[in-house]
Design a protein around this nucleic acid. Sequence first.
DNA 1: GAGTGGATTTCGCAT
DNA 2: ATGCGAAGTCCACTC
Lengths: 271, 271
Amino acid sequence: MKVEILKDPDVKSLTEILERTIKRRTILISGNCWISYWGRASSKLKPGERIVIIKKDGALLVHRPIGYEPVNWMPGDEIIYHVESEPQQSVDEQSTGGHINFEEPVLSIRAVRLKPRETIKIFFDKVYLFAALNLVDKGEFSLYASEEDMQEAILANPSLIEPGFQPITYEKRVEPGFVDVFGIDRDGRLVVIEIKRRTAGREAVLQLSRYVSSLKGKVNRDVRGILAAPRIARGVQKLLVSLGLEFKSLDPKRCAEILNKKRARSLEEFY
Amino acid sequence: MKVEILKDPDVKSLTEILERTIKRRTILISGNCWISYWGRASSKLKPGERIVIIKKDGALLVHRPIGYEPVNWMPGDEIIYHVESEPQQSVDEQSTGGHINFEEPVLSIRAVRLKPRETIKIFFDKVYLFAALNLVDKGEFSLYASEEDMQEAILANPSLIEPGFQPITYEKRVEPGFVDVFGIDRDGRLVVIEIKRRTAGREAVLQLSRYVSSLKGKVNRDVRGILAAPRIARGVQKLLVSLGLEFKSLDPKRCAEILNKKRARSLEEFY
DNA sequence: GAGTGGATTTCGCAT
DNA sequence: ATGCGAAGTCCACTC
């Protein structure tokens, strides 16, 4: 069955259908609930009307009517669920605060994550909508103009940095941290490139500086440090120069375009 | 009306109800859709069955049947929506990939965010469930065992650090950065405490070291630096010692418990 | 308005 | 397992 929808269901039917569908279907529940969380931190959420999503892999999301982020959540993997119908008497009024319907028993959903150990308990005293959906999703997702794309674009087209630049390795680990791209310029000098997809700040400059310094100490010869980013923060330019580093403007979107062309070309060659 | 639910609605009814409820209700849509995003980066998602949430503040979430994170999203605030019914012919088959139902027109939802400028376009060719919910949520959310709580716990119970420790100020600004807690030990020496809620890494040690150094330069007398955290990263212990700093194990949960007791007590006093 | 740092960050990768 | 760095990070706070 593709979709099972219950409108204003009672706790008994809910308990039953949840036990049957949890971690087998994508589940939507909307109603009045209160929530406690204990684990890496701990939290309490007093009663209110929210949306709860439980996915096939066990991932749990609680969304309030406002805001992009879930108020409570649990990433999938190794989540164990317990569903129970409980008499309302057991609910600690003080801990819940707001209004609770004392007529019917409450639905309790307990999610336990094993690593790290943490628990979310959700209590519903009123459910407006329950839906169990048998969703199939094999659609490919592709993201363009990420930092990884920028790196790939530089490797495919080194002149993006400057004429004569030759990449040698990328994402090479150097003490401390790592370098995004590592190569040689037209004069044979070592070049370390740090890539940022957004405006580069002080942190990026200091990081690059550490790379360059540690490398200089090892190879005992000149090393150029280039910060490749769409822009550099205003005050940071001076710092960059004072540390003997360079800046190269690099637009992530342009990198994405270059990559798209390259990918299209390799597709042509393939056919 | 609290809840409006449509099961297997046609595109025409959807367009109508969406225009009436969007940014006025919490909206749930589940069906077969494909999505493109353009803004800070860009992405494409080929057809598949997902859940779309649109909140009253305009926040948009697209969830696949697996995983904790949304595959596409838009934070609320300054989001403009356009809802249209479109003939399927206009859909670029190549850009969508998988299966598309060519019988009916498709529902298109376009969300435009102004700052930064970005756009999400969602096309549905089949909707299994549509729900518009009039949710009210005023429940208070409280999170415990934050870094701030640990600070508060130390101030309330200074012996957590060591016998005889006396806090003077907290979150005091010192060059560079700031100090979490600042006080005097039983021998009258200055103490700087840096608090970390989780395993303290190299960064925390270096930060504390900077505090202590700059303070020593100013007061021209001995200053102890104590890193208070649940644990310290393995390799970093040596660095800590070599910099003349100390480590004090401090469990955030225990801090939270202490605070809870303290708060309960003050509540008793209040009544 | 931009920069800085934290997050129940999550996620991935490399040691 | 642990640690480090990116993310369409988001978010709050400071300058």
